[in-house]
Design a protein around this nucleic acid. Structure first.
Lengths: 338, 338
DNA sequence: ATGAAAGCGCTAACAT
DNA sequence: ATGTTAGCGCTTTCAT
């Protein structure tokens, strides 16, 4: 194993010079810097992570808490995680992968052992058990998601309320007046993850302003429950001409069932989804949709957390990303004779 | 920050005693151990990761290289990654998340900096650029996947050949004689990830033994290409009564298209899939399938790599997990008048 | 069964 | 602009 001392000897300088030449924390003459860099390359030197962490009390590692529950939003979670890892590397940081399983204990462990310089926490619930610890911790933390009380916390999330509003607007522009919302499973609302409620709020407020009638129904992901929900919707509101879906698992069944029941999408019924790009793009009818900007969320979270590590950057910043509606093929002008 | 020294003082013993009491590397009287453990709890002591790594040249971190390419097998990758993280924790290890993006450079970086004690590499290609480095590295590595040359390497993977064989057997048992294989996109075969080919080999060999006629067609995941593939299959082999699908994206289109063309599953046509449980279970017709045992793969990889770290465990071990076929509703007795 | 002390490889004052 | 040196908190000989 190549050490700093060996590099120093090889370059004919002192250890600190090598250290400073590499960190750039004090000015070094071009000549010495060159010599040092040469020796580093020639010897294949890599600073020892443990030693560096011990001496500087900086590990250059960011812990990422990912929900273990593997049943929902998996591709988006993965995309965020990958975006976080990629962004972190461009700033010289590595990612430590923690599963939600350890819960609050993980926060204590990371803080106590100084394993990571900061934490990024995904899948935050409205009243998450980790929040108090995170607030108390003397390590920076950024949440991906939006708890009910954001005091003393940094958060990055999609502005789901705005997403709901955008959907309502788009359908109103197309002349629709009666809209049904196929929501997440009831369990999601009960878990109080917040995002589903926020979409609904945005949808409701904008609908009220635009004079749309709105009917909301939570829904499981199975064919059977989508079928049941659908027939109830058409029973209660036969004039429904458009759907907003926020339920990854329900979109495909929804399209299939509409087709089966003789309703063409988008000629007879329009569908707008709030879901990952992939799901929207690969559906049997490519879906006009608002996507979760996973990449950007990951990148922003990293930037925010690094800013905090390095002493720049306010704490208690809530960054809500503006939704973007992508027009595909599932939403069109409302049919005439309604 | 609580240090070992503080714990020692609080417990009225020396630093080394605390260290040994915690590591169990030499015998400690029950009384002292008790006192130490009490102090640890009372003070909320967590060993400093950097210091420990420096002194012991063990980081208790395993690096996990996950493919960045987020377009395929995402849920399975995620499931494996989570299983790896969970299993690692039960053995006192943490996971460092590396994206495939860095490629071979990541291997050098980890080895040079001693950031991790070992590596687990996912999504290995037949002739992966990282293999030479991994073989040369003096850190243990375990691959999830099976390259063409496994010399000097530890691998964990599903036995895809056996999976193919199991599918052939199941369909033969049900009286099918003409079988079509809907495979992965041609690009997958060209990328030489190997698993698709291995399934096919197993399928072919067992089919030959059982007297089945087999037709293989690679296929993109879109509705259009599944439709095209399907009509070609029925053109060439009108007597086809069963399908084996190995293409996550194609399964739903396949079922939809069969239904549309008036062929009931499983009454008229049987379908057996090689795909993740979730996909199989949530398809419009629950699929009889062979799943990728993601959890087990993750766990085995961790166990194997830790065995190597700790000096037990042979290197050059290839562990092929036996496939298990789960009978659901998509495969039944072949129709009579064929 | 326990202590004392020498590093592990690096960073960051403190020199000059 | 560069060198000297004192730790960072732990593990692990070497003593006893």
């Amino acid at each position: 194993m190549v050490t700093l001392a060996e590099v120093a000897r090889h370059a004919g300088v002192s250890a600190s010079t090598v250290s400073y030449a590499l960190s750039g924390k004090r000015s070094i003459s071009a000549a010495t810097r060159e010599r040092v860099e040469n020796s580093v390359r020639k010897l294949g030197y890599h600073p020892n992570a443990g030693a560096r962490a011990l001496a500087s009390s900086r590990s250059n590692i960011i812990a990422l808490m990912v929900p273990l529950r593997t049943d929902m939003y998996v591709p988006v979670m993965m995309e965020i995680a990958m975006a976080v890892a990629t962004a972190a590397r461009t700033h010289g940081y590595d990612i430590l992968l923690l599963t939600g399983e350890e819960g609050a204990e993980a926060v204590r462990r990371i803080e106590g052992s100084a394993l990571a310089d900061a934490m990024i926490v995904m899948d935050v619930e409205l009243d998450d058990e980790r929040l108090p610890l995170l607030r108390a911790a003397n390590r920076p933390a950024v949440l991906i998601g939006l708890p009910s009380d954001t005091a003393g916390l940094n958060c990055v999330d999609l502005d789901f309320a705005a997403a709901g509003a955008v959907c309502a607007e788009h359908l109103a522009d197309l002349g629709h007046r009666e809209i049904a919302v196929i929501g997440e499973a009831a369990a999601v609302y009960e878990r109080h993850t917040g995002f589903a409620e926020r979409t609904l709020t945005g949808l409701r407020e904008r609908s009220a302003e635009l004079g749309l009638r709105l009917l909301h129904r939570p829904c499981e992901g199975s064919y059977a429950s989508v079928a049941a929900t659908l027939s109830r919707v058409f029973d209660e509101r036969p004039g429904t001409t458009a759907f907003v879906v926020q339920n990854e698992a329900a979109t495909d069944p929804l399209l299939a069932l509409l087709r089966q029941s003789g309703r063409a999408v988008p000629e007879d019924v329009s569908v707008v989804a709030v879901c990952p790009e992939q799901v929207a793009a690969h559906a049997s009818v490519p879906l006009t949709s608002v996507a979760v900007p996973a990449q950007e969320m990951g990148r922003r979270a990293v930037e925010q957390v690094i800013a905090k590590i390095e002493g720049r950057g306010s704490n208690e910043e809530v960054m809500l990303l503006a939704p973007e509606l992508t027009v595909r093929e599932s939403a069109a002008q409302a049919p005439a004779g309604t």
